[in-house]
Design a protein around this nucleic acid. Structure first.
Length: 289
DNA sequence: ATGCCTAACACCGTTAGA
């Protein structure tokens, strides 16, 4: 197969993986940019959100030709998540486990895979705006909070396996003041609402580390700039795309950063990739030790 | 200042994003 050529061009590092998350805002529009980015960077596994298409319309063949295997949990028009990888993955889950009150999550927002003992969840957390409607808290905001509760519960289940876990994606959460160009403009918004932050903390206090903030305690950096009002040019950004790692995964993290370049290109997504590098070689060592 | 872009879908406007 065509995979052979790709393997020759990009010999795989055996001891470390680069994992990135990128809300592409339509894979149909962004396929060229994504493939170019994969070629330019040394990304092994890319988690994508807002692909905005059903599984059959994902440009799977183009990624296979580039040497990546493809996992898709798609949906027509809205949402949709996908994972492409040049290391072998095993699919674990499409959609978060439901609680007793939910029937089926009709929105495609979660996809989970594993590579060796490393578990990787790709997520697109609901926006949640507007917070209020005539009756109080809106259905959209309640859906966000419920989704976060289900995510936290699932994260706990995964953590209890004792394996490294990375839950990454578009969280639609501005964790702190320094993650926004002007937090006053976002007070009360679903992305920085006290209830949203409370749900975020329930993940963090459960032992999941914000990889970017752990590596860069005082750096101002963003992952999203609105299309409107010249937000990119004025650097009016927010940091809402995150890589959360449990203790086992955090111990193996080598680096984390945000690649601003794609946001400055023609016809860019409003989000830009966030990546981390993780050591997977001592995973096997520690298990056999 | 909740609509200054952008994308999808179906229709030449509406919905959603954050």
């Amino acid at each position: 197969m065509l995979l052979l050529d790709a393997d020759v061009e990009h010999p795989l590092p055996s001891d470390r993986l680069t994992i990135a998350t990128w809300n592409v805002n339509s894979i149909k529009v962004r396929a060229d940019a994504v493939l170019a980015w994969l070629k330019d960077t040394n990304c092994d596994i890319l988690l994508m959100q807002e692909i905005k298409c059903v599984d059959e319309n994902f440009p799977t063949d183009r990624f296979i030709e580039a040497g990546y295997e493809v996992h898709v949990h798609g949906q027509k028009t809205y949402n949709g998540v996908a994972i492409v990888s040049r290391v072998p993955l095993t699919l674990r889950l499409k959609g978060l486990p439901q609680d007793e009150t939910d029937l089926v999550d009709e929105q495609a927002r979660y996809l989970e895979v594993e590579h060796g003992d490393l578990i990787i969840g790709c997520l697109y957390l609901p926006n949640g705006n507007p917070v209020h409607d005539d009756d109080g808290l809106s259905a959209k905001f309640r859906y966000k909070l419920n989704w976060m509760q289900r995510l936290a519960r699932h994260a706990k289940t995964l953590d209890q396996l004792g394996r490294p876990v990375i839950l990454a994606g578009d969280y639609n959460i501005i964790p702190a003041v320094e993650d926004c160009y002007d937090i006053n403009a976002w007070q009360g918004d679903a992305l920085h609402h006290p209830e949203s932050l409370k749900a975020w903390r329930s993940l963090v206090y459960q032992g999941f580390t914000d990889a970017f903030r752990a590596h860069h305690p005082s750096r101002i950096a963003y992952s999203f700039w609105d299309y409107q009002g010249g937000a990119w040019q004025k650097d009016h950004g927010i940091r809402i795309d995150h890589l959360l790692a449990n203790a086992e995964a955090t111990d193996r993290l080598l680096a984390t950063d945000i690649d601003k370049n794609p946001r400055g290109m023609e016809r860019a997504s409003d989000h830009t990739p966030v990546w981390c590098q993780i050591n997977i070689s001592n995973t096997a060592d520690q298990i056999s030790a």
